[in-house]
């Protein structure tokens, strides 16, 4: 009980004080996760839609793989990206290890399957409804994909947010490829891990509360947008 109330106190003090170090950490968290989500969206939505509409050999297998990849263990992704980006690895010359781009890459790999798998479900349901009409209007497959993505955009916002939530809450991969460098690659989750290892549990929990609030706020905003838009556009 004592720890919990201390945590709330720590969280409030940090937020109220606009602690610049904290603000930097929050800003980096948001930036890295947004960038990862942007990449995952650009790759995952068309991929999900293509799998939803496509009739190609191995499609069922691909759906199973996509669904399975949703549960990709972050440490494994972290390790993989680490080995790729390490100076001794194939992409070493880029010098990306222990930088925010490395974290973005790791997160994008983690959440692209999530976005793709969820988008596939959404688009496939819409395709059942739209298929005959779109084919009747002479929509070529590529155009049909875009139309379906556009028409399910409010559901897809939720899909993308699921990706954002996972990215923002992830620690195993980003700590490995980012290195948790103060002021450079320290994000909310790695800061929480650090404070925990220093035994400063109230501070860690306080950071955790801020993170939860952030993810909550993003979801609430998206939910509201979805509700309002859906009421207007049906």
């Amino acid at each position: 009980m004592y720890d919990l109330s201390a945590a709330f106190g720590a969280a409030l003090r940090m937020v109220a004080g606009f602690d610049p170090a904290l603000m930097g950490i929050v800003a980096l968290s948001v930036k890295v996760s947004l960038a990862a989500v942007a990449i995952a969206t650009v790759l995952g939505l068309p991929l999900g839609a293509a799998v939803a509409l496509g009739r190609f050999p191995g499609r069922r297998g691909m759906i199973v793989v996509l669904n399975a990849l949703m549960g990709l263990p972050p440490v494994v992704v972290g390790l993989l990206v680490y080995l790729l980006l390490s100076r001794s690895g194939p992409l070493g010359p880029l010098g990306l290890l222990f930088t925010p781009p490395a974290m973005i890459i790791a997160q994008a790999i983690l959440i692209t399957p999530i976005v793709a798998a969820l988008a596939r479900q959404v688009v496939e349901d819409a395709w059942t409804e739209y298929q005959e009409q779109l084919r009747s209007l002479g929509a070529p497959p590529r155009r049909a994909v875009w139309t379906l993505l556009w028409d399910t955009r409010f559901s897809l916002v939720t899909v993308v947010l699921a990706g954002f939530g996972r990215a923002a809450a992830e620690v195993g991969a980003v700590i490995m490829v980012g290195g948790n460098i103060d002021g450079v690659t320290r994000v909310m989750t790695t800061a929480i891990a650090l404070e925990t290892s220093k035994g400063d549990l109230p501070l860690a929990l306080g950071l955790g509360l801020i993170l939860i609030t952030l993810v909550l706020a993003a979801n609430a905003a998206a939910y509201t947008i979805k509700e309002v838009a859906q009421r207007r556009l049906g």
Binding site: L34, A38, T99
Partner: peptide
């Protein structure tokens, strides 16, 4: 949407 996405990526990469 695409513009926003690319903006987010650039923004995230720039300070590094």
């Amino acid at each position: 949407l695409l513009v926003a996405a690319s903006l987010a990526v650039t923004l995230a990469l720039s300070p590094a």
